[in-house]
């Protein structure tokens, strides 16, 4: 018998509770169960259901839905339409949020400003779309003002511009709040140190702030992109749902509720999910090129 076995035998057995505690498992850990059930019931199950359903078309073999989607320009062009809205809107929202967040972080009444910015998020896209329709429409005050000054009316709704404006209005506060939290996480003494070492504002931004922000900006871009990619209400209300802003969610909606083809709708939803996943993976894999530790300057 080895020495180790003798030692193990002579030691009083650890209770299950102690052993679980060693792995940070205790009663509170059970609170994660409702969340797990929730995710399974409302996300994983419907996803698998839809995935299987998409391979059970009304007519044709199991790939018929996908073949149909990629052979019909009216369907496959929705991918391009969606990307051409989602990518610029995401980049505009995230890029504009950086300088504003850098300025706001030094303000005293930051809470007031963030509260004001949260309002568009709580209003929801439909209300924003309605508001834009009224303000920017042919008879809205914007065009009336233009006419008053003897200028041509501009068409800002029921086209690409309308949807883009609404995506910026509803997406910017979200992107901004996220950027602000990342920016305030950077120790201000790092920039001070850089400036005492002779770095001018531009160099401080490029060499200190940007590398430390890169990680957060990547996540911000992912979340903003996913949000804008699934644009539906504003694309219908403010856009040209049969033309330039016929986004992929409209195609899915029409398949499900106009043609009552749940299998086709599921296939479109799967394609949509795949597109989002591809972009997110692309961005997050680029993340590994950047520094990903804490943004503090040392101890303290």
């Amino acid at each position: 018998m080895s020495q180790q076995a003798i030692n193990a035998g002579s030691r009083p057995a650890m209770s299950l509770r102690t052993r679980l505690k060693l792995h940070d498992v205790d009663g509170v850990t059970l609170l994660v169960l409702p969340a797990v059930l929730f995710v399974i019931a409302l996300f994983i199950y419907p996803f698998i259901y839809g995935f299987v359903l998409s391979f059970q078309p009304k007519v044709g073999d199991f790939l018929a839905n996908y073949r149909k989607f990629f052979s019909d320009p009216f369907l496959y062009e929705t991918i391009g339409n969606t990307f051409s809205l989602a990518i610029p809107a995401t980049l505009i929202n995230v890029l504009i949020s950086i300088p504003i967040a850098l300025r706001v972080r030094r303000m005293h009444h930051r809470r007031l400003l963030t509260t004001i910015l949260v309002i568009p998020i709580t209003l929801g896209t439909v209300l924003i779309a309605e508001g834009l329709l009224i303000y920017l429409g042919p008879q809205g005050w914007f065009n009336r003002t233009l006419v008053m000054f003897g200028l041509e009316k501009v068409r800002l709704v029921h086209n690409y511009t309308g949807v883009m404006l609404s995506l910026i209005l509803s997406g910017f506060p979200f992107a901004f709040l996220l950027t602000l939290s990342y920016v305030t996480g950077i120790d201000p003494s790092l920039e001070q140190a850089a400036s005492t070492l002779g770095a001018k504002a531009r160099a401080r931004f490029r060499l200190i702030l940007l590398p430390l922000l890169a990680q957060g900006l990547a996540i911000n871009i992912c979340l903003s992109f996913v949000q804008t990619f699934s644009v539906f209400p504003s694309a219908v209300l403010l856009g040209a749902p049969a033309g330039a802003t016929r986004v992929i969610s409209i195609a899915a909606y029409q398949a499900a509720y106009e043609q009552y083809d749940n299998s086709m709708a599921s296939a479109i939803a799967m394609i949509m999910g795949f597109c989002q996943l591809a972009v997110v993976i692309l961005i997050l894999s680029g993340r590994s090129f950047f520094y990903r530790g804490s943004a503090g300057g040392g101890k303290g």
Partner: peptide, 20 residues
């Protein structure tokens, strides 16, 4: 003068080393 124009060396309490 701005700090970057003074050319003084400064050691911060929390060191302020660039973590990246």
């Amino acid at each position: 003068l701005r700090p970057e124009e003074r050319g003084f060396g400064m050691v911060f309490q929390n060191y302020a080393l660039f973590p990246h």
